[in-house]
Design a protein around this nucleic acid. Structure first.
Lengths: 341, 341
DNA sequence: GGGGTCTACGTTATCGCTAACAATTGCGAC
DNA sequence: GTCGCAATTGTTAGCGATAACGTAGACCCC
């Protein structure tokens, strides 16, 4: 493992292994990649030599020579949102046994940063790119189109994609929630969300929600936005603020479960009648929140499934290039929980 | 941006840009890397050509030629733990303006997977490795020792490291919490944690906790372990179980804030007297939980700072190689919150 | 024994870029 | 004019691996 003899700290190469085992570099390469015909005897010999030297192949050289890179770029807005690690785990699980490896880039919801991250990723010539959202800067879009590798845009299907698309319709999700709320008899409805112009999915949900309400002749009674800080705390604060400002409100729709949970905790603490007097709903179906005294109504966003489907597309096309352009729309399901009557 | 003329879908190379702009490949390379003297005129010409072609440099070739890779491998046990994304964000923030880029690998707390991930990372010849924990398989340790790049082991300082180490003493953190609890007059103390033999930091905290209790002549009254599932829910269930089994218990020490929060919510719901009859404490200081009706006592694990310090070490040594072996122990602080009397 | 067919391994020529050095140019000084 | 020097641009030779093809035996057959 270590390398006591002649340790000049020169990085090990295939040649070192080849000399140590008395065969050509090519044969070593073949052994290390399990490719081509090698006799069992030399195979052993080579592996032994590689192991005692502690040789680690140089993928940079390998990738350049073979014009193949086993990396898949995954570009997401954030890691602290909880949603994205889940998508990632779906991706990893599928790629695990394909020889491909995800490499994550984070954009912080900034189109400029997305463009930089994408450029950086593409400069490693990955086998595919999985990127969150359909909205990209002109530069990013051009890069994706010209990348010459499978591109899967995930999370959202409301709009045209560059290549393949896997996600849910956030617009429809918003509409359905609105319909459920109206059907339950709530009429004075407030919306609480993030102040993030670049979170297009949240925006589309709100648009859909408004459409849904409009069909019943209802418009939002009140809205409240936040940015930054602990989501749970913000949810509590915004809820307090809205209830103070608009006491006769009877439903609060939160743009995500985390602020919804903050609101729920606040309402329970104040002894409000949930869901009788006041209904609540969030979005995402984060498993984390099982364990609250009451289950928040929410809508599963199919996060893991989005990840795995996207990874499957990339893996399939890395194996044998096809036409591409797949569009997969998943169906989120309302989980009514205990906060809609 | 796009490439209408002669679009044979052959990947673009430096040569294409060089031909398009009428200079040598070397000059193009210089322009694209902002290196060496290039006249303003040619610089413009080259950039223009690169832009219209939509050229993206091939870092694989570049890295091979220059023997330099701007990647830093970051190996962590999990992304869903919330702690690790925070560490990551500390790392990213620092690397942001060094030209280095983090690449994340996840081990799921498995030493075998850690070894595979590490091997994979090292095969890309990164400029440095940041890896969680001090406990590694023999193979992993050997690879780290022979990697020939800066290695920073993070999170934990209780034990010998391969090279640099940045973290806190979990043993000491456990002891301090025990002392605080004893000082507050609690005597019948229970521990609730994860059943993860490979989570060495949790193990060390418990050991330290026991030491701290032992100094006051106390031993744990009851313990409860879980694995898998929603942490909040598990915290609630474990708390319920322990209170049923050992009704006279007066303090619950949780191995992380998430299950602690679950326990806290349960206790509040049951109307227990917290912190009078029953004290609670967790570990980590996750900001996420601000917003609970009462603040759980906890201990900040300096996650962001660990990340940024580690990144600084790597960046510094990537810039000019030094001896290495730095050991940085950070000081976690008890946040008493509202659940210790 | 010449010719076919395997099997196991070696040779050669890239892959796309950059380090190091070489060459050219322009320009003022002498 | 030509010498010297700085500023700019070009040439050559790898980086460490792999693809594609080449070759030496072994073995078999007629």
């Amino acid at each position: 493992m270590s390398r006591s003899p002649n340790d000049t700290r020169r990085p090990l190469t295939l040649r070192d292994v080849s000399e140590a085992s008395g065969v050509s570099e090519m044969t070593v390469s073949r052994v290390l990649r399990n490719r081509g015909d090698v006799s069992e005897a030399t195979r052993e010999k080579v592996l032994e030599a590689a192991r005692t030297l502690g040789y680690v192949p140089n993928k940079i050289a390998g990738a350049l020579a073979s014009q193949r890179v086993n990396l898949v770029g995954v570009i997401i807005p954030s890691l602290s949102n909880l949603v994205f690690p889940e998508v990632l785990s779906g991706i990893s699980a599928v790629l695990e046994d394909t020889g491909l490896q995800p490499v994550v880039g984070v954009t912080d919801y900034s189109p400029e940063k997305e463009e930089r991250v994408l450029y950086e990723m593409l400069s490693w010539r990955p086998s595919g790119v999985i990127i969150a959202g359909l909205e990209h800067s002109a530069g990013s879009r051009a890069m994706l189109e010209n990348a010459g590798v499978p591109v899967v845009e995930i999370m959202d299907v409301d709009g045209p994609g560059v290549d393949a698309v896997v996600g849910i319709s956030h617009r429809r999700a918003g509409r359905q929630m609105a319909e459920a709320i109206v059907a339950a008899g709530y009429r004075k409805i407030g919306f609480l969300g993030t102040k993030m112009p670049e979170d297009h999915r949240a925006r589309k949900r709100l648009e859909g929600f408004n459409e849904g309400l409009a069909q019943a002749g209802i418009t939002l009674t009140d809205t409240e936005f936040y940015s930054g800080g602990s989501a749970l705390l913000k949810g509590r604060e915004m809820t307090e603020a809205m209830l103070a400002r608009t006491p006769d409100i009877d439903f609060l729709y939160y743009s995500n479960d985390m602020i919804g949970a903050g609101g729920l905790i606040y309402c329970l603490e104040k002894g409000l009648d949930v869901p009788g007097q006041l209904g609540l709903a969030g979005f995402n179906g984060v498993e984390l929140l099982a364990g609250l005294p009451r289950q928040l109504a929410t809508m599963d966003a199919c996060r893991r499934e989005i990840g795995s489907k996207a990874a499957e597309i990339v893996a399939a096309r890395a194996a044998n290039p096809g036409p591409g352009g797949e569009i997969i729309e998943l169906e989120p399901v309302i989980q009514r929980g205990d906060t809609i009557r």
